[in-house]
Amino acid sequence: MDPKFKFFEKVIVSSDEPSLKTINGRSGAILGISEDSGHGFSYSAHIYEYGEVWVVMESDLEPTGEFDSREAFYDGYSVQVGVDAKGRGTLG
C-alpha cells in the first residue's frame, strides 16, 4: 500500500487522540514518512504555528490539496561524515 500523503504536502491535523490535542486543527507539512507493518503510515509533520515536527498517524491527517517547497525547510547545507573500519564517524 502506498502512503496517502507525499513529501511537503500541506495537511491539517484532525484527531480525537489526546496526545495530539495541542496540534489538533493546526496546519503542517509532511517532512518524513514511515511505515509500520500492522499500524500503517506515520508522518513527521512540521506544524507551522509551533515550528515543531510531530509524529502523526495517517488517520489523524487531512489533505489540503496544497504543497510547500523543499526550500521552505532546507537551505541546501550538508555535511560529510567519514566512517572508519570500527564504525566510528568523523565530520569531513
Rank of each mutant, 00 (worst) to 15 (best):
M1Y: 14
M1F: 15
M1D: 07
D2F: 05
P3N: 02
F5D: 02
F5S: 02
F5Y: 03
F7C: 08
F7D: 13
F8D: 02
K10T: 08
V11P: 02
V11S: 11
V13M: 00
V13D: 01
V13W: 02
S14P: 03
S15K: 00
D16R: 10
D16E: 11
E17K: 08
E17Q: 10
P18K: 01
S19E: 13
L20Q: 01
L20T: 08
K21A: 13
K21I: 14
K21S: 14
T22Q: 10
N24M: 11
N24P: 01
N24I: 11
N24Y: 13
G25N: 05
G25A: 05
G25T: 02
G25K: 02
G25V: 04
G25D: 04
R26T: 06
R26F: 15
S27D: 06
S27W: 11
A29I: 09
A29H: 05
I30Y: 13
I30P: 13
L31C: 11
L31A: 12
L31P: 04
G32S: 14
G32F: 08
G32C: 08
I33C: 11
S34Y: 07
S34C: 14
E35D: 14
E35C: 07
D36S: 13
S37R: 11
S37C: 14
S37E: 15
G38I: 04
G38K: 01
H39F: 15
F41Y: 13
F41C: 09
S42M: 09
Y43F: 14
Y43C: 14
S44P: 12
A45C: 15
A45T: 15
A45Y: 04
H46G: 11
Y48W: 10
Y48Q: 06
Y50L: 01
Y50A: 00
Y50C: 00
E52I: 14
V53D: 15
V53N: 15
V55I: 11
V56T: 05
V56A: 01
V56P: 08
V56E: 00
M57K: 09
M57H: 02
E58T: 01
D60V: 00
D60L: 04
D60Q: 06
L61I: 01
E62W: 07
E62G: 07
P63A: 10
T64K: 04
G65P: 04
E66A: 07
D68E: 05
D68K: 08
D68F: 04
S69K: 10
S69T: 10
R70N: 12
E71Q: 10
E71D: 05
A72Q: 09
A72S: 12
F73Q: 03
F73D: 03
Y74C: 08
D75E: 01
D75Q: 02
D75K: 09
G76D: 06
Y77S: 01
Y77I: 01
S78M: 10
S78L: 10
S78E: 03
V79G: 12
Q80K: 09
Q80N: 10
Q80G: 13
Q80F: 15
V81P: 04
G82N: 10
G82R: 02
G82I: 06
V83R: 03
D84I: 06
D84P: 07
A85Q: 02
A85H: 09
K86L: 10
G87A: 00
R88E: 07
R88D: 09
G89R: 05
T90I: 09
T90K: 13
T90M: 12
T90N: 14
L91Y: 11
L91V: 04
G92R: 09
G92I: 09
G92N: 11
